[in-house]
């Protein structure tokens, strides 16, 4: 008897799961597309000050995902990656853009669920401006030595939101160090300036075409 009830329950659960699976085929691609578009938008925004127009994805040996950023001539301008730091009540995600000397080009917080009115001030934009005031102070600073004033750095933390401020600052610094390390191990031939893969391929094929009689 119990077996029959159990089977009936499993049948109902299976039916429900089937229906959900159908809906999932519709919504999963939309969700993935949303996320991709949002990340791309963030990347463009943080590198806008340097005139970047193209990005190329790279994955380092340890799984770190970062993007090489190029201007319209194909010259390497900098790097973008996602920095993650444990905040007060959530993991804060910041899209961080650096130039080739690893100074901060721009930052954009893409996920946080910090304390309303305190940690959330990290995304607050003053009237008449276009970017959060907390993030503006990072621009141009050496990303590899970032720290809040309490930790002997020169970043002004948000009043009452030290933990959130530290999360952003430290994660951007750690991410810069990781990308710097990954870039140092990139398979770029010695003596050649860093070019985008496609541009290098074009030059390579053009050169080999020229060499033919």
């Amino acid at each position: 008897m119990i077996l029959r009830l159990g089977l009936l329950l499993m049948l109902i659960a299976a039916l429900a799961s089937g229906g959900l699976a159908l809906l999932n085929t519709q919504t999963a691609p939309v969700i993935a597309e949303n996320k991709a578009r949002e990340q791309e938008q963030a990347r463009t925004e943080v590198m806008r000050s340097l005139g970047v127009t193209r990005f190329e994805k790279r994955v380092a040996d340890d799984g770190l995902v970062y993007y090489r950023a190029f201007d319209e001539r194909g010259v390497l301008i900098g790097y973008v990656t996602v920095a993650r730091g444990k905040g007060y009540s959530s993991t804060v995600e910041t899209v961080a853009g650096y130039d080739t000397t690893f100074h901060v080009a721009g930052l954009k917080i893409t996920f946080q669920q910090e304390t309303p009115g305190l940690g959330t001030k990290s995304q607050e934009i003053r009237k008449g401006e276009t970017t959060p005031w907390f993030l503006q102070q990072f621009a141009g600073k050496d990303a590899t030595t970032l720290a809040v004033k309490k930790d002997r750095g020169d970043i002004d933390a948000i009043t009452g939101a030290t933990i959130t401020s530290r999360a952003v600052t430290n994660s951007v610094r750690e991410a810069a160090l990781k990308v710097k390390d990954a870039v140092a191990h990139e398979p770029v031939p010695i003596g050649q300036p860093a070019l985008s893969d496609t541009l290098a391929a074009e030059i390579g094929s053009a050169a080999s075409r020229e060499e033919q009689p």
Binding site: A13, A16, S17, L20, A21, L23, N24, A28
Partner: peptide, 8 residues
């Protein structure tokens, strides 16, 4: 990918 079944 069956993560949509998480809640159930």
């Amino acid at each position: 990918d069956l993560t949509f079944l998480r809640t159930i």
